[in-house]
């Protein structure tokens, strides 16, 4: 038994966020181990929060959304089928809710004014301080810069990019979450990466 497998078998869903893969969650489901809400919350509080934050671009709205998403997860626990990947199921719930949440709020396209004050980085200032692309990306200002650039992307680009590069979901998992063919994920991801690159360029 590998270290990862042992981790899944003994303390499922409590592995470190960064190392916990969707495939391991399948092993949990396949093993017949019960998945409790507490375990799900422990595992997914950060990813769900991060997704909500990226899509709402507001701490307050992200908090509201997370509360509802976890309520839906709690309600749906009995309906969760073990053959489904837990991560896919959770992200599906989160995405479906966030999509309707944004529509219900008549969300307008991204505007930089909607960002929190402490997260706003002056475009001019960043450009002055970061004369090359690498510095923009690596420095902390660069992370903010990339985050803001991500926020300016179309929602269908933002979500696919976040699930793939932010949360390391596979093409198959993203296709399941978004309910689109894998080919669509593939092409949309390429366009999203291209769009993001254009956004961060001076």
């Amino acid at each position: 038994m590998s270290a990862d497998e042992q981790c899944v078998a003994v303390i499922p869903l409590q592995c470190a966020d960064a190392s916990f893969k969707a495939q391991q969650v399948v092993a949990v489901a396949g093993s017949g181990l019960a998945v409790t809400f507490e375990e799900i919350y422990t595992r997914f509080r950060r990813p769900v929060w991060a997704l909500a934050k990226r899509l709402t671009q507001s701490d307050e709205e992200a908090l509201d959304a997370c509360q509802e998403i976890f309520l839906r997860i709690w309600r749906g626990l009995d309906g969760f089928r073990n053959e489904a990947k837990l991560s896919t199921w959770v992200f599906q719930i989160a995405w479906n809710f966030l999509r309707s949440y944004r529509r219900s709020r008549g969300r307008q396209p991204f505007s930089i004014e909607s960002l929190d004050d402490d997260k706003v980085v002056s475009i001019g200032a960043v450009r002055d301080r970061a004369p090359d692309a690498e510095r923009r990306v690596i420095a902390s200002e660069g992370l903010n810069w990339v985050g803001q650039a991500l926020g300016r992307l179309a929602e269908h680009h933002r979500i696919v990019l976040w699930l793939r590069d932010g949360e390391d979901l596979s093409y198959e998992d993203i296709a399941a979450v978004l309910d689109v063919p894998i080919g669509t994920v593939r092409s949309r991801l390429a366009r999203a990466r291209r769009a993001l690159r254009n956004e961060v360029r001076p």
Partner: peptide
């Protein structure tokens, strides 16, 4: 690099 940045943001 952008991918690494997004992962770090997450």
């Amino acid at each position: 690099r952008l991918r690494q940045s997004l992962r770090q943001l997450a």
